[in-house]
Simulated assay, not measured.
Amino acid sequence: MKRLMSMTVVSGLWLVLAASAQATGGNVAAGQAKAAACAGCHGADGNGGADPSWPKLAGHVPEYIVKQLSDFKSGARKEPTMSALAATLSTTDMINIAAYYASLPRKPSAARNAELVKQGEKLYRGGNAKTGVSACMSCHGPSGHGIPPRFPKVSGQSATYSVQQMLAFKAGTRTNDGETMTRIAFRMSEQEIKAVAEYMSGLH
C-alpha cells in the first residue's frame, strides 16, 4: 500500500512537472477564451479585481500558474473557489491559461506607506541575519520578476494578497510550495511581512 501511494505521488508530481515544462508553449487565444470565467476576480486584463486579496496574474511566470492550478485541482493548495474552478480544467487548459496571463503586462500597484517601503526594501534586498530570514531577491530576483519555474513574479502584486499568502505560509496553512517560504515566513514578524509586501507592490 505504501509503495502504491508513493508511486501515485511520484506520478502526480511528474505530471505537474511535465505540464510546467510545456507551459511556455501554450495557446494564448485558447487560454484567453478559457480565462473568461477568471475575469471577475482577477480582472479583465489580469491585473486584479475589486478585492485586493485576489491576486494579479498578468505577467506571471507561466510554469508557476500551471503548478498552482494543478495544486488547487489536487487539493495540495486549498481555496474553495479556486479548487472548484480548477477541478474543471484539463492540463491543456491550464497550460493555455498560463500562457495567456503570462502574455499580459502587469501594472504595478502604488506603494502607500513610505516608511514600510523603506523597511521592506531592506528586508527584500538584505534579509534579516539575526532571525535567519534570507533576502527575498535571492529567489524572486532583484526586480521581483521571479526565477522560473519555481519562484513567482512578486513585483507589482497586491500588497494585501502578498500579506495574506505570507501569513498562510507562516501559519503553515499553505504548504504546497515546499519548505522554503514556510521556513522564511515563520521567522518573519507580521510587521516585516507587511513591509516586504508594501515594497513588492511598487517594485517593477
Rank of each mutant, 00 (worst) to 15 (best):
G46C: 03
T92V: 15
M82S: 02
G40H: 10
A39N: 10
G25D: 12
V61K: 04
A33V: 13
A84F: 11
T92F: 08
A99W: 10
S74D: 03
H60Q: 08
A33Q: 13
S83P: 01
A84R: 13
I95P: 03
T91M: 14
V61Y: 02
V66I: 08
P52C: 09
A33W: 08
Y100Q: 00
M94I: 10
V16W: 07
T81R: 11
Q22P: 02
P62Q: 05
S70F: 11
A23K: 07
A19D: 10
A23L: 08
R106C: 00
K73Y: 05
A35Y: 07
S70Q: 10
Q68M: 06
P108H: 03
G59M: 01
S83K: 13
A23Q: 06
W14L: 14
K67T: 10
L17E: 10
S53Y: 15
A44M: 12
A98G: 07
S109I: 01
S20L: 08
L85Q: 11
A39D: 09
W54Q: 08
T24D: 00
G40I: 04
W14A: 14
K107L: 12
A98I: 01
A19I: 07
A36N: 07
Y64T: 02
D45R: 04
S20D: 00
G40S: 11
G31E: 03
T24A: 05
G48K: 03
S74V: 06
A35C: 08
K78E: 04
A44G: 13
P62M: 05
A23I: 01
V28S: 05
A35N: 04
L85A: 08
L69P: 00
P108E: 03
N96P: 05
A39E: 11
G31P: 04
A99Q: 10
P105T: 01
A58C: 08
G75R: 14
L89R: 09
A29W: 05
K56V: 01
D93H: 12
Y64V: 02
L104W: 02
P80S: 08
F72L: 03
A18I: 09
P105W: 03
V28R: 12
P62V: 07
G25C: 07
A29V: 12
A87C: 07
A87T: 12
A99H: 12
K34G: 00
Y101F: 13
Y100I: 00
A23S: 10
T88Y: 14
A29R: 10
W54D: 02
E79K: 15
G46S: 03
A50M: 13
T24K: 10
T81H: 13
S53A: 14
A37V: 13
R77E: 01
L69G: 04
E63I: 04
H60M: 00
E63W: 12
F72Q: 05
L17M: 15
T81L: 14
R77P: 03
A21E: 05
M94V: 09
A37D: 07
A99R: 14
K107S: 09
D71V: 09
W54I: 07
A29M: 07
L89F: 15
L57G: 01
K73D: 01
L85I: 14
S109E: 12
G25M: 11
T91Q: 13
A37H: 11
P80Y: 11
V16K: 05
L15S: 14
